[in-house]
Amino acid sequence: MRPLVETVIEDRRWDGIGLGQIAERGARAALAGVGLMPDGFSVALLACDDARIAALNGTFRGKGSATNVLSWPAEERGAGAEGARPDLPEPGGAGMPRELGDIAIAWETCAREAEAAGKPLSDHAMHLVVHATLHLLGYDHIREGDAALMEGLETRILAGMGLPDPYSEPDS
Rank of each mutant, 00 (worst) to 15 (best):
L45H: 08
G78K: 13
G145R: 02
I53G: 08
W72G: 00
G40A: 05
A94S: 13
R77C: 12
L100K: 10
L56F: 10
G58Y: 05
G162N: 03
P166A: 11
G118R: 08
A147K: 15
H135F: 12
E10G: 14
I105G: 01
L149T: 10
W72M: 09
S65A: 14
I22V: 15
S42C: 13
T133S: 11
R98N: 08
E75F: 04
L163D: 00
A47N: 06
A51P: 00
C110Y: 01
D11R: 02
D49E: 12
E151G: 01
A117M: 13
C48T: 15
L137W: 05
G62M: 07
A148Q: 14
I17C: 05
G33L: 05
I142A: 13
P97W: 06
A125P: 01
D11C: 03
R112Y: 11
M1F: 11
A74C: 06
L121T: 08
M1I: 12
V34S: 07
P3A: 07
G64H: 13
F41A: 02
L100W: 09
G83C: 06
K63E: 14
A47W: 04
H135A: 07
R12V: 13
D165Q: 00
G58A: 15
S42Q: 14
D123V: 03
V8S: 12
G160Q: 12
A125E: 04
I142C: 01
C48K: 05
T7A: 15
G160N: 12
M161R: 13
A125Y: 04
S122N: 03
D39M: 10
G64N: 14
P86D: 09
I17H: 00
L88N: 06
H131I: 03
E169F: 12
L163Q: 05
A125H: 05
